[in-house]
Design a protein around this nucleic acid. Structure first.
Length: 326
RNA sequence: GCCGAGAUAGCUCAGUAGGUAGAGCGGGGGCCUGAAAAGCCCUGUGUCAGCAGUUCAAUUCUGUUUCUCGGCA
């Protein structure tokens, strides 16, 4: 091997808002380059919602190897860190087989962890988090935000006093590790990127996306989304479980529990999907490293991705394994 | 037909002891370092149903018309 073990691994990344056609494009690229697709979506890792979370369908999965899809039970938690190390292992194996690791999904932060690295913060004791969450509940977020201000003013100033999630995160890290989040984040030498490669982002304006999102919900229902939710409900009736938090799942659960009419369930489902797509667009728009390409120009993407991979191989792998010659 | 209750932001509604109005949701914009399909922030002028009257001043009071929802016929 020419490269040290911690050298960033060469990858191709395909991101974009939900429903923009990433799955299909990934398969097209795979036909050209010989890819293995690695899921970069925080909800498609769950096993019991393949339809509602828009995992690739069986006939799509069979076209090339796919990884990290449908792995977790509804009660199991995933985090960006866990995903990142699973993805890293996966990428290594794909490269070893001489294939192209193609990361496909819509979870911006997951791409970020892989391409920019993460602070090696140890796992936090869930009881500690539960305690802090209870305190936020009873004492109010402002109080804990003020406490955070006393120990980690740099981070406190960056987050809003109402941002319970981040306040709890910062406090639990400080309490358990003895170092503040700011300190961890400043340790740049400890968080080198796990992978390197172009981040292609499917640019999909909302006016183009809206009808597709609407249609897709109907298609999901035709494919058995409701039955999928019913079945999942028998496996796990706890609506608070991590797997239920996906858009579509939460709304169908509310319907199954009689908290929503079917009509309102569908309306909410669409509304939340749309809002999510907007948030994704906002996230990706802000990425400096992103290479955008418009919805119609899939051939443009395919040739760009192909070129990018050749360059990556030349520059980062030399004649080591992992390259594929055109 | 009669009797009640309504008519205020895209939706659901609050309010003004008369000085032209505000919440939630939606919509729009943004943030994002281990829950990220999560979490969080910013953003509200609308003939206050129409017409007439009282008044310096009416969305607010009075009359009337229209419409909606109940009840009685």
């Amino acid at each position: 091997m020419l490269r040290a073990a911690d050298q960033p691994l060469p990858v191709l990344c395909l991101a974009g808002p939900t429903g923009s056609g990433k799955t299909e494009l990934a398969l097209q690229l795979s036909r050209r380059l010989g890819c293995e697709v690695i899921n970069t979506d925080s909800r498609q890792v769950y096993a019991d919602f393949p339809i509602i979370c828009a995992q690739p369908r069986p006939e799509e999965l069979s076209q090339c190897p796919h990884h990290l899809y449908g792995k977790l039970k509804i009660e199991e938690k995933i985090s960006a860190g866990q995903w990142c190390s699973m993805a890293e292992d996966c990428i290594r194996e794909v490269l070893r087989r001489g294939h192209v690791p193609l990361l496909v999904g819509g979870t911006g932060m997951y791409f970020h962890t892989l391409l920019h690295g993460m602070a090696p913060i140890p796992a936090i004791d869930p009881r500690l988090r539960a305690q802090l969450e209870a305190r936020v509940e009873s004492e109010g977020p402002e109080k804990l935000h003020a406490e955070l201000g006393a120990i980690d003013p740099d981070y406190a100033i960056r987050i809003h006093p109402h941002d319970r999630q981040r306040i709890v995160r910062a406090l639990e890290v400080a309490a358990q590790t003895g170092h503040t989040l700011s300190w961890w984040h400043a340790q740049k030498s400890l968080q080198s990127p796990r992978a390197q490669g172009p981040l292609f982002v499917f640019q999909a304006p909302m006016t183009w996306l809206e009808p597709r999102l609407k249609r897709r919900i109907d298609q999901m229902l035709e494919m058995g989304a409701l039955e999928e939710a019913q079945k999942a409900y028998t496996l796990c009736a706890d609506g608070e479980a991590p797997g239920w938090s996906a858009i579509g799942c939460a709304e169908l659960l509310a319907f199954l529990q009689g908290r929503l009419s079917f009509e309102n369930c569908l309306a909410l489902w669409y509304q939340n999907t749309r809002a999510y797509a907007k948030r994704q667009n906002t996230w990706f728009r802000g990425r400096k490293e992103a290479i955008f390409f418009p919805a119609e120009a899939s051939d443009q993407f395919l040739s760009q991705a192909e070129d990018a991979w050749q360059n990556l191989c030349a520059q980062s792998l030399g004649n080591a394994s992992g390259g594929r010659h055109a």
